[in-house]
Structures are given as C-alpha cells and as structure tokens.
C-alpha cells in the first residue's frame, strides 16, 4: 500500500485545486460518520478529482459499456432492498457492484470448469485422452490438486480437495475480473476476503475436530505432559491465549493478504494512469503509461499468484490441523 499511497499523494498534489476541495472540505469526523452510516456508496458521491476510490470500492451502481458507443460507460443503478435486522446487526442484502462481480466470477467458473469437464470427459471417452480446452483445464486442476492440495492436506485428502480447488478458481476469476474494462475486483473488498478466510477457518477447525476428536481441545488448551508438573499450569496459562491468537491470525492474514494485494495493485495502476492526465503532456505522459502497462502485467501475475497462495495456505492450515497438534 505504501507506493500506492505515495503515488496517490503525488496525484493529489498535482491535481487542480478545485478538484481537491470537495474531498478536503469534509472534516475527518464527518467522514467517519458517513462511512459508518453508509459504507456502500451510491453512484455520485465522490469528489470529481478522485477516480481511484470508486474503482476500488463497492457501489450500488454498475458501469456497463454504452451502446453503440461501447467506450462510453453507462451507469446502471442497482435496486436497493430494505435492510434486514438480525439482533443488533443490520444486514443490507441489496446487490452491489461486487455482488454482481462475484456472480459473474462464479458464472465464469461454472462455464469454464463445467465446459472443460464436459470436453475432457467427451474426448477421454472418444479417443482416450483429453484435448484442447479440457486438457488445459485438467492441467491447471491437476496442478492445484497434486502439487498444492494433496501434499499439504495430509493423508486421505480427497474430502478437502474440492474446497481448495473451488477457492482457487473462484478467487482467480474474481481477481481477473478487476483487470478487464468495466470490471471490478471483488477480492479487493475486505468483506469478500474476510468471508472466504472465515470459511477457511471453519473448514480448518472442522478438519481438526474430525481428525483429532477430543485431541482437538489440545489445540486450544495447551497442556504438555512432557513438562514438569509445576510448569504445566503455568505454561497452560501462558500458551493457551497464544494458541487462540495463533488460530485467529491465520484467517486474518489470509483475508488481509488477498485484499491488500488486490487493492494495492489497482491503486498503483490507477495512480499511474492518473499521472498521465495530471501531467497533461504527451511527452511526459508516456512514461507513466508504460509503467502502468508494466504494473498491469504484474497484476495479471499477481491475480494468479494470490489465488494460488490463498489455496496453498488454506491447504497448509488444514494439513497442519489434521496431522495432530504438536
């Protein structure tokens, strides 16, 4: 995030004064209140000079290509539903841009993977080996399965392999959607990554309970029989909070890693593109453009890398938990 914020500061410094004022005019306290009251903004809430925030945050509107001039975005306002109150928590289930993106990612996953599976099965039945698209899907799937999931999950990994594969493909498509025009990175939203991490956490704990039975409790309550009797309660008091914190750190790191990587990359790309307009010169603008293209390629790599890392770490955590604690 550091280079991103630095570049953003550069951008703000170079922007015209009138572009800066609306953002600056809102006092920090009001900002906090606004964010607390309504963290998912509508379409036209931003300062005209700030084009980075709407790109990386969620909104209740969707940009779609215009027709017939597809390069002119057309904004579709998504419906607002009444929020649901469960206890003290207000849940606003209105579809947002990121919900749509998640749905598109899921749909793409289905189309690509089910299509690949069909082609794979079809060609395997006809001539004994897959070809083309099915073969490519098989290669990626088998790579994740045989190199990422199976070696880390421990013995009898088959029950957890679909979860790892699903995580990989879903995160990958959600990441890639942010790189195409009119798209947005749903995995650049902490809610999405936190949910995925939370689900991973639940799967990890479930795996621990299933393979260790009552031994699972020892992953929370530290009780080491190798220690002298006097030391056991002491270490119990000292280590048990650490064990609990260790448990919670893993999903937290998963969530923040994916979120920060996605957001940072996009901020860098957008800031570089912003520099082109800030300089208002063809000569100087070329350099940030070239850099933006470079960062975009890096982003393409990062999209795959982060999906890979998320699934890898999920399988490592599950495997660690299953192999029995200590």
């Amino acid at each position: 995030m550091k280079p991103g914020s630095f570049l953003l500061a550069l951008l703000i410094a170079s922007a015209p004064l009138d572009a800066q004022t609306p953002g600056a005019a809102i006092p920090p306290a009001a900002t906090e209140q606004t964010a607390a009251a309504e963290h998912v903004a509508g379409c036209e809430e931003y300062a005209p000079g700030d084009f980075i925030t709407p790109h990386i945050t969620d909104a209740h509107c969707l940009e779609v290509p215009g027709f017939p001039r597809f390069w002119e975005p057309h904004e579709v306002v998504l419906p607002r539903w009444a929020p649901i109150h469960i206890g003290g928590v207000v849940i606003d289930m209105s579809p947002t841009k990121h919900v749509i993106m998640l749905l598109i990612a899921a749909l793409l996953c289905c189309v690509v993977l089910i299509g690949g599976a069909r082609s794979h099965v079809h060609h395997t039945r006809i001539k004994g080996s897959p070809k083309g698209f099915g073969s490519g899907i098989e290669a990626m799937m088998l790579y994740i399965r045989n190199e990422v999931a199976v070696p880390n999950l421990g013995p009898h990994p088959n029950a957890y392999v679909p979860f790892i594969l699903g995580l990989f493909w879903f995160v990958l498509f959600a990441n890639l959607l942010g790189l195409i025009p009119f798209g947005s990175t749903a995995t650049g939203n902490i809610s999405v990554t936190a949910t995925l991490a939370l689900l991973t956490f639940l799967v990890v704990e479930f795996a621990g309970i299933r393979s260790n039975g009552f031994g699972y409790l020892r992953t929370i309550f530290y009780w080491n029989n190798d220690l002298p009797v006097v030391m056991r309660p002491l270490m119990f008091l000292l280590m048990s909070p650490i064990e609990v914190v260790g448990k919670l750190t893993k999903p937290f790191a998963l969530a923040v890693r994916l979120f920060a990587n996605m957001v940072a990359g996009h901020i860098v790309v957008l800031a570089l593109i912003g520099l082109v307009f800030a300089f208002k010169s063809y000569l100087v603008g070329t350099a940030p453009l070239a850099m933006a293209v470079g960062i975009m390629m890096l982003e393409l790599f990062v999209a795959f890398l982060q999906a890979f890392i998320f699934s890898l770490l999920a399988s490592v955590f599950i495997g660690q938990m299953r192999e029995g604690h200590h």
Partner: peptide, 24 residues
Amino acid sequence: LAEPAPKNLLDPNYGLMVWTLVIF
C-alpha cells in the same frame, strides 16, 4: 489517503459477506 477518500476500505459490509458466502 484518508482525507480525500470518505470511504473506509476496511469497513465490512455484512450484506456482501452473506452474498459471498452464499455464492461461494
């Protein structure tokens, strides 16, 4: 970063979380 962006990037949206869970 904080001043020009009135949005809080780390504020969870429970609706989106439920959506994510359901979709995934």
